[in-house]
């Protein structure tokens, strides 16, 4: 018997770089909204969206702050699209040690986009009246549970490489650390 399907809401900001006019209103309003108290100040450096902007090369890429990562990637991506070369890591959302993007200017703590939880739409979208940023919400079927096979496959691969004992030790050590 099939169980009742679960759904989750997927929130998407569609970024149309062709429409971006480079005005950075998104940065301004994001930082104003997240100021404490709300709107008491603004500072684009605190924004969770940044426009990578090089007018003379016609590069305009609004990028959103994603997950924090403590380590740099070993390789760096460089994209060339329609003959335009974008900076290393241009499209990456991570707050990471390799660049100064998405960090609080005074504390250095990482920033992350929260889609302006509680508002009708993210404020960067509301303020982007040239429609480079638009907002979409859709319902998607949620996966029931994580497929057990995925974990099995991963652990087997690690066991092949390091031996089962080492894996057991590592798991024990990590779970101990978690408890501490």
């Amino acid at each position: 018997m099939p169980e009742e399907k679960k759904t989750k809401t997927v929130k998407t900001i569609k970024v149309d770089v062709d429409k971006c006019n480079g005005c950075r209103a998104c940065e301004m309003i994001c930082s104003a909204y997240h100021a404490a108290p709300k709107y008491s100040g603004n500072n684009p450096e605190r924004s969770r969206v940044r426009v990578i902007r090089e007018p003379l090369r016609d590069v305009y890429v609004p990028v959103y702050a994603g997950e924090y990562t403590p380590a740099e990637c070993l390789g760096r991506d460089k994209y060339i699209i329609d003959g335009k070369e974008y900076d290393e890591c241009a499209f990456c959302r991570a707050s990471c040690p390799s660049r100064d993007l998405f960090k609080e200017p005074d504390s250095g703590l990482p920033l992350k986009c929260d889609m302006c939880e509680g508002e009708d739409e993210p404020l960067c979208v509301k303020w982007c009246i040239v429609d480079a940023l638009t907002y979409e919400e859709r319902e998607e079927e949620a996966e029931e549970d994580e497929k057990p096979e995925d974990i099995d496959v991963g652990i087997e691969a690690l066991a092949d490489k390091y031996g089962m004992d080492k894996i057991m030790d590592a798991v024990a050590r990590m779970s101990q650390q978690k408890k501490d």
Partner: peptide, 13 residues
């Protein structure tokens, strides 16, 4: 003309 552009915090292009 490659792109219509704006000054800081302005949508007027």
């Amino acid at each position: 003309r490659t792109r219509l552009i704006s000054c800081y915090n302005c949508p007027m292009t």
